[in-house]
Amino acid sequence: MLIPYQPELIAGTLVRRYKRFLADIRLDDGRELTLHCPNTGSMQNCGEPGSQVWVTLQQRPGRKLPGTWELVETAPEELACIHSARANSVIAAALEAGLIIPLAGYPAIRREVTLTPGGSRFDFLLTGESGSCVVEVKSVTLALGEGEGAFPDAVSLRGQKHLRELTLLAQSGQQACLLFCVMHSGIRSMRPADHIDPVYGQLLREAAAAGVRVLAWSIKPTPLGLEVAGQLPVKL
């Protein structure tokens, strides 16, 4: 299943990323533009100046920047989608198509659901004859080499909070899932990035022990679109 980009991507070269949300891009036609960088993480190994990138250009009323950085080539024939918000949209499409097999038994899908007063807003609540399952999605672009990917790429207090709440939900009998949306074509397995955020790694293992299902799904980026590729192993 390929989810195409709308509008089509335009190729260029990364000049620099700065102030977290800004990137200077030199397009192949010679124009140099400042575009939106839609990623709050460190983007480790994904933000090297001189890298080939692909962007969307959309000038809309009220928008300050003329487009968005979408893809980057991190190694020969390896691409990463750095637009982290696309993780939820592509996972939603995959869930609706029944492509995420471990979660295919829930025909009803709700997005952005809060289950407890004052609690976090989770990405999905799936319901079916067997009950319900809350799903939190994390976008992954950190490739460590030799096919191994990891999350997070920076200390994630928000991610730690999600894991604590998922653990409590699982302990109360609620089905819960942490789903790594792996948007890097060079990643073939996943693990927690203990060298970056050891607390997150510990909480992830505790969550799994409490019954939280931990899944990783490969979403291969291409300049034509995002391809739902299949399940990856998770090494805890």
Score class of each variant (00 low, 15 high):
D24W: 08
L27K: 02
L65K: 02
R60K: 15
G98C: 08
P192I: 01
V234R: 00
P7V: 11
T74A: 04
L204Y: 02
P76C: 07
R17D: 03
L99C: 01
S120R: 13
L204E: 05
E32V: 10
R60F: 06
P198I: 14
V90I: 15
G47Q: 03
Y106V: 11
G119N: 12
A93Y: 09
V214I: 15
A150Y: 07
L168I: 00
L22D: 04
K19N: 08
G30R: 12
R86M: 05
E78V: 15
G149K: 09
A104E: 14
A97Q: 15
M190V: 05
M183W: 08
P223Y: 06
C133H: 12
E32T: 14
L144R: 15
G201H: 06
L144W: 02
E112Y: 14
G230S: 10
G119F: 05
L71E: 11
Q174I: 01
T40F: 15
H162K: 08
S89L: 12
T34G: 02
E165I: 06
K161S: 08
I196D: 05
L126D: 06
H162S: 11
G149H: 11
V199I: 10
S189I: 02
V140C: 15
T116C: 04
L203N: 04
C133N: 09
Q44S: 07
P192Y: 07
M1F: 11
E206Q: 11
E73H: 04
S89I: 04
S189G: 07
A93K: 05
N88A: 06
A104D: 07
G211W: 09
S89D: 14
E227N: 03
G145S: 10
R188P: 01
P76D: 14
T34V: 13
T56M: 08
T34L: 00
D28I: 11
G30V: 13
Y18S: 12
P61H: 08
A207H: 08
L226Y: 03
A85M: 08
T116P: 03
P76T: 11
T40G: 14
F124V: 10
V72Q: 04
T167K: 02
A104H: 12
Y18G: 06
Q231A: 13
L57P: 00
I10Q: 13
Y106D: 08
I91N: 00
A176P: 01
Q59Y: 03
V90M: 10
G105S: 13
